[in-house]
């Protein structure tokens, strides 16, 4: 068990190590005075903190709303609305993230909260769709067997439908995370801060080191999160 845990942790730890090393190296070895001014521990930690806040708040919110919404839409009474919603969501997902952020900017203006809200709305889509599709995809005979054996609707949902749909729901969350992590670096354009700040600053002052630092941390964050959720995905599906 402990050995397994170690195996689990080794890749994330390596990734965090690389990230930390890059930050320490670039902050301590600035190529010129502009880089030195722009790239301080204080600034790097601030954008990382902002980035994490963007991701976490929008993802937690989107997961809760998406899963609950998907469950509600899969109930027999709302099922046809669910079918319609599925199509709308599919179109919504095709809209590029930059367009979503830009449109939210025109309605709500600039700021961190606007960015969080835009990411939140955008991330709901895959989670909602997968939750609905996952529950909808549970074989009718299985649900009927459960009902026939005397499970009430709530038990059927929690003991049968949700566990069977779980891998698909997790896959939806994983898609949402990948999209969200990508979109979070764009938050800077509407004043949302985050790691995009470093990249944009670097591009505007033509300093590759700043661009590089921002890009490396953003990439590592994304790979780290994807890896972790991938492991969770592996763990939950023992039965196929």
């Amino acid at each position: 068990m402990l050995q397994n845990l170690w195996k689990w942790l080794i890749i994330p730890l390596i990734m965090l190590g690389i990230g930390a090393a890059v930050v320490i190296y670039t902050v301590n070895n600035p190529t010129d005075s502009i880089v030195a001014r722009m790239l301080t521990y204080e600034r790097v930690f601030r954008v990382i903190r902002e980035h994490m806040a963007l991701l976490l708040v929008s993802m937690i919110g989107a997961t809760i709303v998406g899963v609950l919404g998907g469950i509600m839409l899969s109930r027999p009474k709302l099922y046809y609305i669910g079918r319609v919603a599925e199509n709308i969501v599919n179109i919504g997902q095709t809209v590029p993230s930059l367009a979503v952020l830009a449109l939210f900017y025109t309605v709500l203006g600039l700021g961190f909260r606007v960015a969080v809200f835009a990411l939140f709305i955008y991330s709901i889509l895959p989670i909602l769709r997968n939750t609905f599709a996952g529950i909808d995809g549970v074989e009718r005979s299985i649900v009927e067997a459960a009902r026939g054996m005397g499970m009430n609707p709530f038990r059927v949902l929690t003991k049968i439908e949700l566990p069977i749909a779980f891998p698909i729901i997790v896959a939806g969350i994983r898609t949402a995370i990948v999209i969200n992590v990508g979109a979070a670096t764009l938050a800077t354009f509407i004043g949302g801060g985050g790691l995009g700040d470093l990249i944009v600053t670097g591009l505007s002052v033509h300093r590759d080191m700043i661009i590089f630092t921002g890009a490396v941390i953003a990439a590592i964050t994304a790979i780290f999160l994807d890896y972790m959720i991938g492991k969770v995905e592996e763990r939950v599906v023992r039965w196929t």
Binding site: G196, G214, A219
Partner: peptide
């Protein structure tokens, strides 16, 4: 390929610029 796709697009573009 999976890792490449997970990297945020802004970061990917940023890597390409230098």
């Amino acid at each position: 390929c999976q890792v490449l796709m997970v990297i945020p697009s802004m970061a990917m573009l940023a890597f390409m610029v230098p």
